[in-house]
Design a binder for these strands. Structure first.
Lengths: 137, 137
DNA sequence: GTAGCAACTCAAGTTCACTTGAAGTCAAGA
DNA sequence: TCTTGACTTCAAGTGAACTTGAGTTGCTAC
């Protein structure tokens, strides 16, 4: 399996080298193989990094992702820790989904306003979305 | 219309007084009426705060929300500023929606794993979601 | 050998979104 | 009048997630 240098990983992921070193420092990535002091990443790190990015957007902190990764493979605890975390996070994600959808609908409606009578249209759109006149005050 | 003290607003919203003062300081809430030096909020602030919370969860920074609020009511600029911002944010929100849904599906599937052969089930679930074996390593 | 480049470490700095603490003010009640 | 309690301002501190900068190291090319 191919190994990647830190700069190849940054090219694939858009992350900066400092971010990769930071992830390693906090234990989110396990220390990689070094060749002459330099990091050589296994290709599978790309999938893990993709999952980290997805998780972050879904509202997971890096600490939560670390808990998730590390306690899922820890057979000692019997999965109690991540089970609780995931249950809580699933609820939070539902709330977040609702909020994003609401925000999207509001903004799509506002974007559809004509430049003529824009202010009026925005107020009406706000009312339609139960936001009152508080957006425009 | 009823006026609310800062503590009433915190009760309704779950925000702390310091957060409300901070929002005012950065211009996200306009300075409220003072009575004997104390803030008296118009009830409509509740809707604005709800929108701020929704916006934050949807991935807007406080600075972006401020731009949005302030440039939407600014008839000078012809709406160019917020129009661009909203177009960009709508794309970001779609990406975020996709990420949350993917994360939810993954975690729901993992939660459905039986305690017997948990590790194996997690690996298989990861593969089903194209995450490879990198979650468990 | 030495120049160049990409990587390294380690400490300190940055941004965002607040929070905390110290010191002061105002209105109401005993 | 004095105290209490809820507020006020202002400056400094916090935690998360990185970034930056200084100084070092290890190949590769000339």
């Amino acid at each position: 399996m191919a190994e990647l240098s830190i700069s190849q990983v940054t090219q694939e992921t858009g992350l900066r080298p400092s971010a990769l070193r930071y992830y390693e420092e906090i234990g989110l990535l396990k220390p990689t193989r070094r060749v002459g002091g330099r990091r050589h990443y296994d290709e599978s790190v790309l999938q893990r990094l993709a999952l980290i990015q997805t998780g972050q957007q879904a509202g997971f902190s890096l600490a939560e992702l670390e808990t998730l990764f590390n306690s899922m493979l820890d057979t000692e605890t019997g999965g109690a820790e991540w089970h609780t975390l995931v249950a809580r996070k699933l609820k939070e994600m539902d709330a977040r989904l609702g909020n994003i959808k609401r925000m999207k609908r509001l903004l799509e409606d506002i974007m559809a306003c004509d430049d003529e009578g824009l202010a009026e249209c925005i107020v009406q759109t706000g009312q339609k979305h139960q936001i009152g006149t508080s957006v425009l005050e």
